[in-house]
């Protein structure tokens, strides 16, 4: 008896140690980024163009590029993803087609990001002739983000009680009226949270934009969707591997901006989640 108690203590200590090995580096990484990146942050760093072969100046074009890409991705992925989730959750019967769609979504979420890059290059850049452009990059990121949005939306839709739908149907509402009238309004917080998380992930992706939009260096801002653009993740790649002698300050400053942006999106998402969870009456 004492023996098994002792064993339990030892086992739990090992589990704790493993957890620390997993979690401690996260804290360490964030600390390193903060400590090295904070000194770089200034109004000028955020809002001026890179100078001295990107060793100085700011990151404004990359910031703007990433912003455009997020907006572009959102424009394509959100409507498509939400409609697809509505189909799966509210319309689809349990049959082979539905199963095939589900498998397709699982596979889309598993396709390596660089393969999305190849696909975007071949379909959007070359075949459709968009060239390396914000349009091609956004579409590529959008398809990559779809499974995240579909899955999150589906969860949010299925969390709406079945009885709401029955009430609506029993009053003579059609399926679409039911979806619009009682299902969507009650699923919006969940959809919003999932969508923001999906977009924040897209914002940090590098591989899919490598050949579809990302520019090494552009002194001016893009003016149309057919322009190339700089983007924060790719800019980090360039600063850390392609340009020699970039100051640590500039590198970490850029990293901090990207990570900060993504964390803000994440915080907004979880705030929405907890706010509506508290307000929820059903």
């Amino acid at each position: 008896m004492i023996d098994s108690k002792l064993k339990e203590k030892a086992a739990f200590a090992i589990l704790l140690a493993a957890t620390i090995i997993v979690i401690a580096p996260v804290a360490l990484i964030l600390a390193i980024i903060l400590i090295n990146g904070l000194p770089a942050l200034s109004f000028e760093f955020l809002f001026s163009i890179p100078r001295d072969g990107m060793r100085g100046g700011g990151i404004f074009p990359a910031l703007v590029g990433t912003f455009y890409l997020i907006v572009g991705t959102a424009l394509f992925a959100i409507p498509f993803g939400i409609l697809a989730a509505i189909y799966l959750n509210e319309y689809a019967q349990r049959n082979r087609l539905t199963r095939a769609i589900e498998l397709a979504i699982i596979n889309l979420s598993g396709v390596p990001s660089i393969v999305y890059g190849l696909f975007g290059l071949s379909l959007f850049v070359e075949f459709l002739g968009f060239g390396a452009s914000i349009l091609a990059g956004s579409l590529t990121l959008a398809i990559m983000t779809l499974p995240v949005i579909i899955t999150a939306t589906r969860e949010a839709l299925s969390a709406v009680p079945r009885s709401f739908r029955e009430v609506s149907f029993s009053l003579g509402a059609s399926r679409w009226q039911t979806v619009r009238g009682v299902v969507l309004p009650n699923a919006i917080p969940g959809i919003l949270t999932g969508t923001i998380l999906g977009l924040s992930r897209a914002a940090g992706e590098t591989a899919p934009i490598l050949f579809t939009v990302a520019a090494f260096y552009l002194p001016k801002l893009p003016t149309s969707v057919y322009d190339q653009a700089m983007a924060l993740p790719y800019h980090i790649y360039v600063l850390s591997t392609q340009v020699p002698n970039v100051s640590v300050k500039v590198q970490y400053g850029t990293v901090l901006v990207l990570v900060g942006m993504i964390f803000i999106l994440n915080i907004v998402a979880s705030y929405i989640r907890s706010y509506f969870r508290k307000k929820k009456t059903w």
Binding site: S163, F164, E166, V167, S168, F169, S170, L171, G172, V182
Partner: peptide, 14 residues
């Protein structure tokens, strides 16, 4: 369904 209404077992306000 408009002509034949139903009231469920539990009160189900939206």
């Amino acid at each position: 369904r408009k002509r034949i209404g139903i009231v469920f077992a539990l009160p189900l306000p939206l």
